[in-house]
Amino acid sequence: MSKSLSVDEINTEFLPLIYDIIRSYERDSHELSSLAQKSLSMRDPQQSTNDCNTKMQALRDQFNQFRQQVLQINGIAVTKEEQLKSLDALRQQLVMKRDLLIKYKNSCPFDPNNKI
């Protein structure tokens, strides 16, 4: 049986990793253009490709983990119709409880000395 999660417990920090991947690609393209212009030696192109692939795999893993966590959210399997029925039942309970409170407030207090 898997643990139920709330929405606040889910890891949604994708942007730093996406930003890092974009920055790596920009850095690689910049180094390639400067290499073509100046004929300088740059770091191993295979290493930069592996670095980007590693970061992409980390992002895929994080997305997969996110998908698994979403499936563990409380009430995720409840359909819209079931939610609407539950909401209607809760509204009816609220109306009944309000009516009871109003009746209680408007009722005469019990006085044991008062004989009818």
Rank of each mutant, 00 (worst) to 15 (best):
R60D: 10
I73F: 04
L59K: 01
K80A: 14
Y19G: 06
N106I: 00
S107E: 11
Q83E: 14
S86R: 04
Q62L: 15
S2N: 04
T12R: 14
N53L: 13
R43F: 11
E26M: 09
D99Q: 06
Y104S: 10
P112L: 09
Q69H: 03
S29G: 01
Q93R: 10
P45G: 04
L94S: 05
R91M: 08
T12D: 05
M56C: 12
I21S: 02
L87P: 00
F63L: 15
V70A: 05
L32R: 07
D99Y: 01
S86N: 10
F63Q: 09
N64W: 11
R27K: 13
T49C: 09
D28C: 02
L101K: 01
Q92A: 07
R91N: 07
Q37M: 14
E31P: 00
G75M: 14
L87T: 10
L40I: 06
Q47D: 12
L71H: 09
S29P: 00
P112Q: 06
P112G: 03
E31N: 08
L94T: 09
K103T: 01
S107G: 10
K55A: 13
N114G: 08
E13P: 02
Y104N: 11
F66M: 05
Q65L: 12
K105L: 15
D88N: 07
L32H: 02
Q62S: 12
F63D: 05
S34I: 05
K55V: 01
V95C: 02
Q47R: 08
K38F: 15
N11T: 05
M42L: 03
L94F: 10
A36E: 11
D51S: 12
D61N: 14
E82A: 05
Q68H: 07
Q83W: 08
K97I: 00
S33A: 09
G75N: 13
N74I: 12
Q47F: 13
K105A: 15
L32F: 03
K115V: 14
D111L: 11
S24A: 13
S33P: 00
D20A: 11
L100K: 07
E26T: 08
K3Y: 04
I10C: 00
Q47G: 01
Y19R: 15
N114D: 10
K80T: 13
S4D: 12
V78S: 07
K97Q: 06
S4F: 15
D61L: 04
I22T: 10
N64I: 06
K105I: 12
L15C: 04
R60I: 14
P45C: 03
L32D: 04
N53V: 03
C52A: 13
V70R: 05
P109K: 15
R67V: 14
L100P: 00
R91Y: 04
M96P: 00
F63A: 12
Q72K: 15
L94N: 04
A58S: 10
Q68F: 06
L40K: 05
Y104R: 13
Q47I: 12
Q37V: 15
R23M: 01
R60H: 10
D28Q: 06
